[in-house]
């Protein structure tokens, strides 16, 4: 864990976003306290607190005074729509560039996508969560 080049608190925040997107953490679920997080992953409590503060800023988590941190209503949908915007620029662009280097045509790519639609790419309405499919 925490092997990336980004600051550790970014990596923690990203891991929590990932759990919300996958449904492992649901709206209104309580997330671990900074103390639990720190002792579980053996990281400085301030690092965990920074990650939580960032997610509160992004309105992914919210704080209930004296109780703890919870997943904000609508967090999963908001994350999904942000990720969709970034998906083409950050994920697909490099793939398309690599494909061009390898001499693959657009139809090679679309054929591949079409044949793999059942395993990877959903053909259902884009607003459904994985469980709803």
């Amino acid at each position: 864990m925490f092997e990336g080049r980004e600051p550790i608190y970014h990596q923690i925040a990203e891991a929590i976003r990932g759990e919300i997107l996958s449904g492992a953490l649901k709206e209104e679920d309580q997330v671990m306290s900074t103390t639990q997080y720190a002792t579980t992953y053996r990281i400085n409590p301030a690092t965990a607190a920074k990650a939580f503060a960032q997610l509160v800023d992004e309105e992914v988590l919210y704080k209930r005074r004296g109780v703890g941190m919870f997943v904000a209503p609508g967090a999963a949908a908001a994350l999904r729509s942000q990720r969709r915007e970034a998906f083409f620029a950050e994920r697909l662009e490099p793939v398309i560039r690599e494909a061009a280097l390898l001499g693959l045509s657009t139809s090679d790519l679309t054929d591949y996508l079409a044949s793999h639609a059942t395993t990877g790419v959903s053909t259902t309405a884009p607003d459904q969560t994985p469980e709803e499919r």
């Binding site: 900074t34 103390t35 720190a38 002792t39 053996r42 990281i43 400085n44 409590p45």
Partner: peptide
């Protein structure tokens, strides 16, 4: 574990 927990 104790250092982190007690420090927190």
């Amino acid at each position: 574990h104790e250092v982190l927990h007690d420090f927190a």
